[in-house]
């Protein structure tokens, strides 16, 4: 491999990545936003969203990916996803119960239906997506530090 491509993988991989990474991100958002009416949901959608960033990191090297989604921002998203989920659950107390589905359920099989479930899915996807990405970053940075010590 020539020195020009030292950061990340070869030109072919980079080009394909440029075409596909946006589609992967969109597909993740699709999965998480349709979690209440089709298979999938917050967890699966969050994983796919995280995969799009991991894909970027694999193809272009960690600098590019960390510029798009810095570590601090990712860990902020992770914690705020959890807070959001807990907040939605706590809002159920307005109707008397923890985790009560207090919003209108709407018409079944519509995108805007099922009350708090889509909101919960979004919160979960924040938590899972950012969490998976930070785990990957942690693994990458850790190997890097051990390599430096040698």
């Amino acid at each position: 491999m020539s020195r020009k491509h030292e950061k990340g993988m070869s030109l072919i991989v980079k080009t394909i990545t440029r075409f596909t990474v946006g589609l992967i991100l969109l597909y993740g958002i699709y999965i998480l936003s349709h979690g209440h009416i089709s298979p999938g949901g917050g967890f699966a959608g969050g994983v796919i969203v995280a995969l799009s960033f991991i894909h970027l990191m694999l193809a272009y090297g960690k600098e590019t990916a960390l510029k798009k989604l810095p570590k601090n921002v990712a860990s902020f998203f992770e914690s705020s996803g959890a807070i959001l989920f807990l907040g939605i659950a706590l809002l159920g107390f307005t109707g008397g119960y923890f985790f009560l589905n207090f919003l209108s359920k709407g018409q079944p099989f519509r995108l805007f239906s099922a009350g708090i479930i889509p909101l919960c899915n979004i919160a979960i996807s924040f938590k899972v997506g950012a969490g998976l990405f930070t785990i990957f970053v942690a693994l990458v940075l850790l190997t890097f530090e051990i390599g430096k010590k040698k």
Partner: peptide, 17 residues
């Protein structure tokens, strides 16, 4: 009863932010 779970979890996530 649910506050036995809510309080520590909320505390943990607020601290982590």
């Amino acid at each position: 009863i649910p506050f036995f779970v809510i309080i520590p979890l909320a505390g943990a996530f607020i601290i982590s932010i």
